[in-house]
């Protein structure tokens, strides 16, 4: 049962990802990516981690994709222009690197991962409980957590500063006229 569920979900995730890359319309791409996120959140659920399921939906589907859609709609940038890439070597290089990555992934999965399907152990299940996850984040991993927070804060402050500078220049120009 779980096996079937896993392959169905994984297939949906892959189809979503492929369609996202191939779709010429940015809004359609965003929707396929949304499908991909939903499938991945179901995969988290199959791994007995309901917390990551909810976070995946809230953060990626509920916030980031909405922002993507908002920007695409605001700029009216649904259609990608069909002009040729300026960097002619970019596409073959990307294909070659992707091939290398694929071979590497297959090699590693064949050689190192045990052949039995993954089953969530009781310890993993206890770890995935939101209360335990929270206490680990705020005790053992408190420094990485704080650093992540500071990086995000710096990004926010940077956006505000850049925005204010542009606005200041505008008002200076207006006063000069």
């Amino acid at each position: 049962m779980e096996f079937v569920m896993f392959f169905a979900t994984a297939a949906i995730a892959l189809i979503g990802a492929l369609a996202m890359v191939l779709s010429p319309n940015a809004v359609h791409s965003a929707l396929f990516l949304l499908l991909n996120f939903a499938a991945i959140s179901v995969l988290f659920l199959l791994l007995r981690s309901p917390f990551l399921f909810a976070i995946q939906l809230t953060v990626y589907a509920g916030a980031i994709m909405v922002l993507f859609l908002f920007v695409v709609m605001l700029l009216g940038a649904e259609r990608a222009d069909a002009t040729q890439d300026r960097l002619a070597w970019q596409r073959p290089l990307a294909l070659g690197l992707a091939l290398v990555l694929l071979i590497e992934a297959v090699f590693i999965s064949v050689t190192t991962i045990p052949q039995t399907p993954a089953v969530a152990s009781p310890e993993a299940e206890a770890f995935a409980a939101p209360a335990n996850l929270g206490s680990v984040l705020l005790t053992t991993y408190v420094l990485p957590l704080q650093i992540t927070g500071i990086i995000l804060l710096v990004a926010i402050v940077g956006v505000v500063v850049l925005n204010q500078r542009a606005r200041l220049r505008h008002s200076l120009e207006l006063e000069q006229k």
Partner: peptide, 19 residues
């Protein structure tokens, strides 16, 4: 056991219909 988070997750998806 993540009921409230589930509520928030589903509410946050509700915007897609309108947008």
């Amino acid at each position: 056991d993540i009921g409230v988070l589930y509520l928030l997750a589903i509410t946050s998806i509700g915007v897609y219909g309108i947008t």
